[in-house]
Amino acid sequence: MLRDITIGQYYQTESVLHKMDPRVKLGGTLLYIISLFLIKNFVGYIIAALFLGIVIKLSKVPFKFMIKGMKTIILLLMITVLFNLFLTPGEELVTVWKLTITVEGLRSAVSMAIRLTLLIIGSSVMTLTTTPNNLTDGMEKMMRPLKVIKVPVHEVAMMMSIALRFIPILLEETDKIMKAQIARGADFESGNLLKRAKAMVPLLVPLFISAFRRANDLAMAMEARCYRGGDGRTKMKPLCYQKRDYIAYICILLYLAVGITVGRILF
């Protein structure tokens, strides 16, 4: 069950998107998300969806794999849609019991659903095609100017990449501890909220202990390999823009121009 989460996972294959500089992908994703909130009509959304479709095609990641990752956040999506549907004031469409659906509500619920879906798929395209290390490298380099105001850019990037490396390991561990406690008669599924929260103790205590032990081991291993912060480090895979990266930037800007013009002004 826990293994179904694909958000933040890397999908290994060879594609233009995989080779692209992480800064392009980071920047591109950011601009794409902004565009989703600037677009105000459905023609605009069609353009956004088309653009994303082309990008997915280029990434060579199976669409099915991406959709699988969506399952885990469908609940969040539903809640947002329902809130919009019932809580937007405006011209009344239908009233069921005490809940009123308005025209504006329907409109904003649908566009919210489209926006969120595109947003989630859009950002998962980035994580699926970029190794977490590469991603943090990109962030580190993009945020380097912040170092002047004493933001620990390298440290933050390193922490993120370590966290990402240990997520699958800790998920597996959770699964194992859970099974072991179930074998000792633990019940994680029935009872009220309080009882369930209490039932988590035999899972969480060992998990935390294990995480601390791992952290301790890892710190020692890093020190043994001469890690001493970002100063004086060289890079195995230094980031530098290629021709394809500039082309990608141009494509993104073109999309932005078309999308926003159509999505806000023309219709």
Binding site: I177, P206, S210
Partner: peptide
Amino acid sequence: LRSKVGLVFQYPEHQLF
């Protein structure tokens, strides 16, 4: 069944809490 068929996992000391 789980009480009748006891299962001790690998490195079981990691489940002590």
